[in-house]
């Protein structure tokens, strides 16, 4: 393997993995040993090794979400040793490497736990609640016609930076997984802030926050207790400031909007 460390010793691990046949079945943690794991592997490559072992022995492989495997798509999840995306801060599961574990470690792997994120199978949860919240207001109106010039609308650098920081949310759901209340407010606030900060988002500014919060309630996410767990576990570092901005947006919209 290019770039691999020739001195890295392969590891033997014990995995305790949540297995659940389908969304209606009862699940349980099942223990699997894996041998000869390279510290250079990503966590998902380690899961691939386990799945190949399972396939060889005729067992059903473990279902887990993954797509880009470079930390930008938000598909991967996994609650690893008690924390969303594992022990490293600012890291998605696909970017978590096995060098952060030791030979002989036992690793517990669970799906995100939230009523609004029902388990489909094994470690795969249904995160379409996020899509419905996004559809409720996470968009901007644009005119059709000629392509506008780039940078036509002046936006102060500090505002553009804040909006960009909020826009880095990859919708993975780690905030919900980390929150003791399974609250989705960090995700919702990132979307609300990103669009409320920019001139392009002003048209739907009031209805956006009202409708997205309303949808968040319908989906059955919990309330925010300001524990800060979401931001601490967020792989892309979405800040708690966004939640407080959502609250200002919410209060202002409720006090002044035409929606009754």
């Amino acid at each position: 393997m290019a770039g691999s460390n020739p001195n890295a010793k392969p590891m033997d691990l014990t995995l305790k993995v949540w297995r659940q046949k389908n969304k209606d079945a009862a699940g349980q943690l099942v223990t699997y040993p894996v041998k000869g794991i390279s510290p250079d592997m990503s966590f998902l490559e380690m899961m691939d090794v386990l799945n190949e072992n399972l396939l060889r022995s005729g067992e059903d492989p473990i279902a887990f979400d993954h797509d880009c495997r470079e930390g930008i798509c938000g598909a991967c999840s996994l609650h690893i040793n008690g924390r969303p995306h594992g022990p490293e801060r600012g890291t998605t599961t696909c970017q978590l490497h096995m060098r952060h574990f030791k030979d002989g470690d036992t690793i517990t792997i669970e799906p995100w736990r939230a009523a609004a994120f029902p388990v489909h199978k094994d470690l795969v949860v249904d995160r379409s609640a996020f899509d419905r919240i996004q559809q409720a207001g996470g968009y901007v109106s644009v005119n059709t016609g000629g392509v506008p010039d780039a940078n036509e609308i002046p936006i102060p650098k500090t505002i553009a930076d804040k909006a960009f920081d909020a826009a880095t949310c990859i919708q993975c759901g780690a905030c919900v997984a980390a929150c003791k209340n399974a609250s989705a407010i960090l995700f919702v606030s990132a979307k609300v802030s990103q669009l409320a900060l920019l001139p392009q988002g002003k048209v739907e500014r009031q209805t956006r926050v009202e409708n997205m919060v309303a949808q968040m309630e319908i989906e059955g996410f919990g309330a925010c207790s300001n524990t800060g767990a979401c931001a601490a576990e967020c792989p892309v570092g979405i800040s708690l400031e966004n939640i407080n901005m959502l609250r200002r947006e919410y209060i202002s919209a409720k006090a002044t909007s035409e929606n009754f």
Binding site: K16, W18, L29, H79, N81, G82, R83, P87, T108, E110, R113, A114, A115, A116, A178, K180, N181, A182, S183, G220, F221, G222, A223, S225, T227, G228, A229, A232, E233
Partner: peptide, 18 residues
């Protein structure tokens, strides 16, 4: 909040984040 997470984690380390 309790209803929002009917099934808890077998392994949880909230002391790492709050």
């Amino acid at each position: 909040n309790k209803a929002a997470r009917p099934i808890g984690y077998a392994d949880s380390r909230p002391q790492e984040n709050s």
